[in-house]
Design a protein around this nucleic acid. Sequence first.
DNA 1: GACCAGGCACATC
DNA 2: GATGTGCATGGT
Length: 220
Amino acid sequence: MNKSKRINSFYKELYKRYGPQGWWPGHSALECILGAILTQNTSWTNAEKAIENLKKENLISMDKLALINADELAGLIRPSGYYNQKALKIKRFISFVVKNYGASLERMLNGDTYELRKGLLGIKGIGPETADTILLYAGRLPVFVIDAYTYRVLSRHGLVPEETTYGEMQELFTDSLPKDAVIFNEYHALLVKVGKEHCKKRAPACEGCPLNYDPHTASL
DNA sequence: GACCAGGCACATC
DNA sequence: GATGTGCATGGT
């Protein structure tokens, strides 16, 4: 079985076992974007607490976030960790949208995807994972998100070598799957799910993994 | 108390 | 190019 087929059958197997995840609908594009920044190297539950604080203050708004100062913002997003850094990241992102898209997320997300990705990567504090998360989850654009779970689950199942780069891994998914944001969303969510349950960082390779995937026989 | 959690930038060799 | 470090809270 070639690489693309493995990527496809792995998805089918995960989907069969865990079903649709319906992940991260988020109530708005802006909320998804804030979540993408706030969850950097942080559990989603902590990022969620920070989002709740912003909601309480009615701050999920381009205008409000443009006006608030970074220190006050930092205080509100404290539970997400790295709060001083993240407050600056959010402010820089807002400035980017104001400057380039007249403060309109819709205008931002409806332009050329490749150009937008480059622009997002130009913002200090937004790297490839965060940029792609914004494109996929806020923009519903067919861009595959690679994260720590993706690396771990795929390498432990022998689907890619350990040293695979972000770009290489993304290319593998992009070239193997239909270019569909819904599938990319589901697949990524399923990888996080199985990663959390059966592919923990310290545990020996895939102890108790229900997938029982053997890369040599490619039995999936 | 150590370790982990849906990263990223920057310094140094 | 690889490797190390700061950023920080909250759960296990």
